[in-house]
Design a protein around this nucleic acid. Sequence first.
DNA 1: CCGGCCAGTAACCAAACAGTTACTTGATGA
DNA 2: TCATCAAGTAACTGTTTGGTTACTGGCCGG
Lengths: 221, 221
Amino acid sequence: MDGGEKKTVKRRSQERVLQRDPERTRAAILEAATREFAENGMGGARVDAIAERAGTNKRMLYHYFGDKEQVYLHVLEEAYVGIRTAERELHIGDRSPEEGIAELALFTWRYFLKHPEFLSLLGTENLHRARWLRQSVRLKELHSHLIVELTEVLDRGKKAGVFIAVADPLNVYLTIASLGYFYISNQYTLSTIFGRDLQEKDNLDAWERHIVHVTLASIKA
Amino acid sequence: MDGGEKKTVKRRSQERVLQRDPERTRAAILEAATREFAENGMGGARVDAIAERAGTNKRMLYHYFGDKEQVYLHVLEEAYVGIRTAERELHIGDRSPEEGIAELALFTWRYFLKHPEFLSLLGTENLHRARWLRQSVRLKELHSHLIVELTEVLDRGKKAGVFIAVADPLNVYLTIASLGYFYISNQYTLSTIFGRDLQEKDNLDAWERHIVHVTLASIKA
DNA sequence: CCGGCCAGTAACCAAACAGTTACTTGATGA
DNA sequence: TCATCAAGTAACTGTTTGGTTACTGGCCGG
């Protein structure tokens, strides 16, 4: 539009400090992309915005990840690895069955509350019917640990007579996850239509207690 | 790309039958937009796609609604009106308190199951922090009816000694909605990572029973 | 019976977008 | 000490996209 010379590129002398640190640049892109995808979804996220947020430019993003979809896939994988890794350090089997379940419920709720971007990414992925998650080879074995440990805790509770016999591990986890996910991810529409700020501390505390109460009430003998 | 003449527009004689039916065209756009927004979110939805799905063209869409955001707002409003209208016909106060709560839980679950596009729209709206919902004047008074009626049922249950005294109407509704919403809207990632098809009839039926069971268990005296 | 109005069409436009190209710079090891 | 190669930059490109313009044609009140 303004300049005519196409070949002779004039360059201003270095404005940004050169990083020359591949690990750092890659990590910065991934973190910036996490925020961008979480805030805008797959369709709304902008490659330029990710590059700018990461303090680099598009060329590097394509250099490290190939294309937009691959960046998204890496972001999604990292997010799942994050929660499942933290979960592993819980050792819900170390205490009584009731305490174990309560601990898992509390952990899940607090993790969701601390990482709303994870919930947002799940929302985006489900909007697209798990299109990228299904392609991921990395995430196939990640989740079995949770179910195995939960099954063990429930079985101990059944033998001790404190839990009902029909308690299904997956259903118990889905109950915990449902109550946390919906409250946080849908807080904006809910606060609007019911005229109550769900982010207020009192309401958050009440819901935390509610999740533990509901989860235990649903499996107690 | 092919034709050169800019001013002299040549027109093929009428290919599509002229509808000349404003009501129908408007409704067709709204229905097509509902599907497009539900499937792709705000950022992913395409105005051209909506027009094509509606069997019309962009000009009409802009004629009736102004711009993309207004179309989306109308879609969202229609969706909320849909569920709240159906809800009103329930009359959960007509039976015993326990039956009333069970009825509301069943209705909500089945409505969600039948209208996944509503859940998707909620997800999109929450991704954008209720940006459009908050602007809507039409949807302010729509939801109070639900809370009023639920409060009445819970109070009756408390007086009869079947419900606990601390049961909060909003929390009861959030419990019901959480369990339905999460299971359906996150079914794709959940089915993938846990290797169980959540759309299978047996699983759906089990979850329906589970929702009623959990809701009642959490408020029973 | 005709002039203006409104539903409808298709071609068009500028901006935004994902992805590419052509080039520069700094570190390293032979 | 200099050739090589990876890290980095900015300008460019073809396409898509939301939104507009210029036009057509059926219908209805005067």
